[in-house]
Write a protein that binds this DNA or RNA. Sequence first.
DNA 1: TTATACCATGAACTATACTTCATACTTTAT
DNA 2: ATAAAGTATGAAGTATAGTTCATGGTATAA
Lengths: 121, 121
Amino acid sequence: MKLINQLSKETGIPIATIRFYEKTGLFAGKKKADVKSNNYTYYDDEVVGKLDLIRDAKSIGFTLSEIKELIDAWYSKQISKEKKLAILDSKLSQIEEKIKELKSVKKQIAFFKSEVENFDW
Amino acid sequence: MKLINQLSKETGIPIATIRFYEKTGLFAGKKKADVKSNNYTYYDDEVVGKLDLIRDAKSIGFTLSEIKELIDAWYSKQISKEKKLAILDSKLSQIEEKIKELKSVKKQIAFFKSEVENFDW
DNA sequence: TTATACCATGAACTATACTTCATACTTTAT
DNA sequence: ATAAAGTATGAAGTATAGTTCATGGTATAA
């Protein structure tokens, strides 16, 4: 169980961003009931996993709201197996679609490139 | 040479968005000097091509500023061949990188899925 | 014990990418 | 001729995803 500073260092995500994500509902730290002198929040390794997932999913263009679905599909105990699988399948389709679009734009840029190389004098 | 309404219909991009893109400097329509009674802007087919490129590039997560570079690399007459090729190569690398990230997240989600399928009872 | 570092909270601020609104003028169809 | 549709411009508003700031309390090391 780590404090926010250590969590930030482990994940490379700024403290303010972690706080923002937590407020957004992507995960939750815990208050230690036995600690009376302060109000500090503690985070376990599951939160590290969630932050890693957030970083990866963001890098491929998922919104925080889409990432929240993904996190719920993987970590939530309130969601049925069927629902989880449906969410995961939908995310996989989104990724397939993105890969297709990327390949298509890649082709277009490669075409631009060959045109610039061959006909731009 | 078409007016903004027709351009919007041809590309499927809302008029307000086209205006926003034009203001952002992604392309420019032309005023007809011989038309004295109004101030209407006219757009040619090159603008249609640019709007198509904007739509495609946006869909794969390029920012408008990145898309502007791309448009310049393809359409600008002010930019040297070498510079254009460098920009296009850099965009191709970005796309390769995105494809890799997508495949990596895809694997991760497939793992989640198999775990949910097999161990979630 | 006191300076430095760390934590919490709320509010304001920023950037990107639009969208909506208000106003006013122009064109077109009836 | 006049109502409906189209165009231009500027300003304000919205959504997402943060970042920065102010304030105040807590922990720790010299």
